[in-house]
Design a protein around this nucleic acid. Structure first.
Lengths: 334, 334
DNA sequence: TTGTAAGCGTTATCAA
DNA sequence: TTGATAACGCTTACAA
């Protein structure tokens, strides 16, 4: 392993001089020595030791991405939204010259542990961490960027989207297309701000149009027999003709169960999703969905992170990105 | 920040004793002091400093996952295979008490740099690294686990699948179902062992059945107008009735373009994919595909890694996992 | 069973 | 513009 010392010896200078050069403090070092040292370092294949750096400087060029580990036998990255966001985030972080660590989190205690253990420079939270936020901020004095949080903690830096408007857009589009009998499919609302706001936007528009959904039209992921429920809703004298899901992934499930039950999309049942994942333009029929710009979200997240790392007292800010409805073939005019 | 020293002071022992306790060297420390120290550490919220550990011990409990960064505007995790594998790998690595870092790689030089910089204990390569393998092994003396490699380097530890048989299974199933006029869709074969072997298995079986594919039946990702090509193949007096793709993702593209061109799957065109991603049972119609067990692959990868970390002179081994054909509705009997 | 001392590779600090 | 020195928090190696 080549160290600063090795280079210093070869160049006939102190290791401090080499250190300065390697860190680009070119102003403090004469141009000539600087060039010479760089050359030697390159020739010797010098790679700075990040651990030593972190130890000495009490900070590292390391970012942690934290993902909720909900389920034993499903890893967090099976969710295409999460993997897409993380994948994009990794790209941005790399561009900034930082390294990225990923941590699955089941227990609160795991978070602080992993952040402290590595002296990470900052952390990005992907998934629902609302209950822990206050404690996280108390325990960790590094920039923490949350995503899609609806925490009541005021001083929090968060990147989210306009979920409520998303729900509204879906409802309006259904109404425009003559749908009156609608349903909803998504995770339990109770503890999830994102889902709740999407749903609220949706039902509020419907209510204003004089439409209210009976309880059985709210289906959630814990439903054992989605196909059966769908079949029931879509038959009878006054069948459901449209369904709003809080994620494209859920919409794909609907597609699948509808197909299995012989319900045709969009002829019998129109579907609107949320996210606009890559897959959504490819499914049959292409999915009408509320689009969020995941790449933008990732780059904004990274920008915020870098800003807070550079200026530790940057004010907390909550950034809300726009959504838009992408109209495809999964909604039929009635 | 709480350090060993702090705990030592409070416990009235040397920091070495604390270090031993924190590292579980319980045999060397009396039971009583051990318990007392653990208690104090817990109370003080001690978190070991991984950087210091890595520095002092010249190794870290850190694994690097390396992903090929092919394309500027697509991140490697947009590929569901990669994100699923990585996601599962992360789970396994966490179970072993290691941390995981992800690195996108464009240039060879980036790899060695990131591995050395963090003193990582081992690395997993996801994607095509065949040309770099020899050099990687020379430059890095830590366990390197490759996946899906067909490198000619003999002493390489790799976890792959039986791609060739996968291709055979697809071909046989088409034949069983009376398909005689077939096509292929996937990445350029030239430099990709995985794709090449899948394709070889496929065409070999066909050849044995006296069927050979004309050049225009080989379509690759660079094709500008996939829909048009599909339309051409599927019309005329002797239309293609089945298409084999080297990845489920490609099959989804076929679905999408077929839909756009008014070609019905499976009535006009049967499709067989490869991977069996989560999505494949959900698309319409559910996709017949050659299944690989990604979870198994990830756990085998992790096991190998741990074994090689524990015993640095473990022999190189190439593990080949089985594949199986999952029959769904995308292939129609002719 | 416990402690002492040195050192891992780097940066911070101060002096020259 | 450079260098000497002391950390950073931990482990290794050896001594008690």
């Amino acid at each position: 392993m080549v160290t600063l010392k090795d280079i210093a010896k070869k160049a006939g200078v102190s290791s401090m001089t080499v250190s300065r050069v390697m860190n680009g403090n070119t102003k403090e070092v004469s141009g000539k020595t600087s060039e010479r040292i760089k050359k030697i370092a390159r020739e010797m294949g010098y790679v700075p030791n990040s651990s030593a750096r972190a130890l000495a400087s009490r900070s590292s060029r390391l970012i942690a991405a934290l993902l909720q580990e909900y389920d034993e036998d499903h890893n967090p990255l099976e969710d295409s939204y999460a993997s897409c966001f993380l994948g994009e985030l990794a790209l941005q972080i790399k561009k900034e010259g930082y390294d990225l660590m990923i941590h699955y989190v089941k227990d609160y205690s795991e978070i602080t542990y992993s952040l402290k253990s590595w002296n990470v420079a900052g952390a990005v939270f992907i998934g629902m961490f609302d209950e822990s936020i206050r404690k996280l901020q108390e325990d960790n004095h590094i920039p923490l960027i949350f995503t899609d949080s609806y925490s009541s903690v005021r001083s929090i830096t968060n990147v989210g989207i306009d979920d409520y408007t998303g729900g509204e857009l879906a409802a309006k589009y259904f109404l425009e297309n003559g749908h009156k009998n609608l349903a909803f499919y998504g995770p339990e609302v109770l503890d999830n701000g994102v889902v709740m706001h999407r749903l609220r936007g949706f039902v509020t528009v419907l209510r204003e149009a004089g439409i209210s959904l009976p309880p059985e039209n709210f289906m959630n992921l814990s439903l054992k027999d989605l196909g059966g429920a769908l079949k029931r809703l879509c038959s009878g004298p006054d069948p459901v003709t449209g369904i709003f899901t809080t994620a494209d992934n859920c919409a794909y499930q609907i597609y699948s169960e509808a197909y299995r039950m012989g319900i045709r999309v969009p002829d019998d049942l129109s579907v609107i999703g949320f996210d606009d994942l890559n897959m959504s333009s490819r499914v049959t029929p292409p999915l009408t969905t509320v689009r969020q710009d995941i790449k933008k979200k990732a780059s904004v997240t990274c920008d915020l992170l870098m800003k807070h790392i550079a200026e530790r007292d940057s004010p907390a800010e909550n950034i809300v990105l726009n959504v838009e409805l992408v109209k495809r073939a999964s909604v039929k005019r009635r």
